[in-house]
Nucleic acid binder design. Structure first.
Lengths: 274, 274
DNA sequence: GCTTGAGTTCCGTTAAACGGAACTGTATTC
DNA sequence: GAATACAGTTCCGTTTAACGGAACTCAAGC
């Protein structure tokens, strides 16, 4: 939960419009975090800090419209499948994942490893596509739909490190939403800063200290304004990215970036994403 | 929609809870249908039938919480990326797509064609996973997140045709939601009935009249109660499913079904889906 | 100039969201 | 088997914000 404790606390600023949506979003966020096991009524009350009556009303409304579903046996709540349809449309609203698929598939075949396409959404990174290669050990640190703090992970870091001017990087690192997402993963700011510096030096990201034995590299995809709007990255086991293979992989990555950059030119509704 | 207006003297009835969510859902449905181009304010007013003031208030609330986003240039609305995160979690709320991935990947490799995993959601079918094979011509009639009327498409049909008792099939075919989804694709009931009959005769689905040149086969995955809760299907070009290859492919499909059936046993929150 | 369509704001009415509290139901404990 | 604790539901008086009609701005297009 992004909400720092503060039971029932309504943020000062947004007072006035559609408070209910914020509450519904808090519930859905909690359920999304819970993933497999679902959440009981009381868990939701605890997670959101809303009163029991409010949560009860909220759940009745949400489940009436298929946004959540309740297991009649256990009474546990899950996200509803109606969200799945919206989510698919949202992720692919510009057809990017679909249109970038050939380039990513080729990259996965060339390298044999798992490749990712991520998008910058404000101060977060959203994974929109994942393609697996043929190498029998697969590195799968994230999957389509996952969000991360900008700066955490090889693709996400690529988008942060090449923001211009550098003050923009500071702004991201100071943003509460970014901080919250970072802390959820237990990554401190100094760590990200070190990575940013190294990335700007090298021209690409190289992350080997996030998951033991796993390694990732990424390159930013610049949008029309030159700012990074997406990233292509690869994840594999440490042994598979030593020189000289590393250099070859980077070239393949760069090739994919060029292709996807071309696709971006045609895509509407991308650059304005928050 | 179809709201008669009438502000005064509403009979006690079931009138009451969370009307706003229904309106929000209508807006999001409209935007999901619109896909790539987004929708203007007026389009939304037209599509939903709500007053301009209502839509305006709704959009302000939704965009304040990242559920929709507006292109500052054109003023067009798109689904927000926050939905993408929820959608991914909803689709994979039981970890099925993730856990079934090895079986599906193997099936795609064995056959070289595109394979699908679908789930039954009430009277609809939801595609939860797609794995592409190596054959250079790929049949991609649907993608993860897509919904279809139960009975339309090889996977979806497999779940309908093996419902027991047969009266349950009638109930699905008579359901307004099923009818609406079917009509959206321009498929009439008699057509589905013919397919159901043929499927029950053969023991698997065989669909070659939905998209010219394309062919699909599917098998149901029975849940704990014996009712089909999921389906594994394959899509390819017509030339690739003649005998004797067809028989071999069917055996691979059956093997994948066995594996996924085992996984289903462990999955919580599946059987109760609506 | 006038007209037309898109989008925004205002405002009085009224439905519905709100939370405290009382309530039911079901395990758990001694 | 009374006592306790926790999960979940319902009730109700108060408060809030959702509601739509209408008036408004703004920018084309004729």
């Amino acid at each position: 939960m992004a909400e720092p404790g503060m039971a029932g606390g309504v943020a000062a600023g947004d007072r006035g419009v559609e408070q209910t949506f914020g509450r519904a979003a808090a519930v859905l966020d909690a359920l999304a975090d819970a993933r497999e096991g679902g959440l009981r009524f009381t868990d939701l009350v605890g997670a959101t800090g809303f009163s029991k009556a409010t949560v009860h009303r909220l759940m009745a409304g949400l489940s009436a419209h298929g946004l959540v579903e309740a297991d009649p046996g256990s009474g546990r709540y899950f996200l509803g499948f109606r969200l799945a349809a919206w989510g698919a449309a949202a992720r692919d609203r510009h057809g990017l994942a679909e249109r970038a698929a050939p380039a990513l598939r080729r990259l996965a075949e060339q390298t044999g490893d798992t490749v990712y396409l991520s998008l910058r959404i404000g101060v977060l990174s959203l994974c929109v596509a994942r393609h697996e290669g043929s190498f029998p050990i697969r590195a799968l640190p994230l999957k389509p739909g996952d969000r991360n703090a900008l700066g955490v992970g090889s693709g996400s870091l690529a988008m942060l490190a090449f923001l211009e001017p550098e003050a923009a990087i500071e702004r991201v690192l100071a943003d509460p939403e970014n901080i919250a997402a970072r802390e959820r993963r237990g990554i401190d700011e100094a760590h990200v800063r070190r990575h940013v510096a190294a990335t700007r030096r090298k021209g690409h990201t190289f992350v080997d200290d996030l998951t033991p034995g796993m390694i990732g590299m990424g390159l930013p995809v610049p949008g029309r304004g030159g700012q990074p709007v997406a990233a292509v990255s690869i994840a594999t086991i440490s042994a598979r990215l030593r020189q000289p293979r590393r250099k070859a992989v980077l070239e393949h990555l760069a090739q994919a970036v060029r292709e996807i950059r071309g696709i971006l030119g045609e895509a509407p509704g991308l650059e304005f994403a928050r």
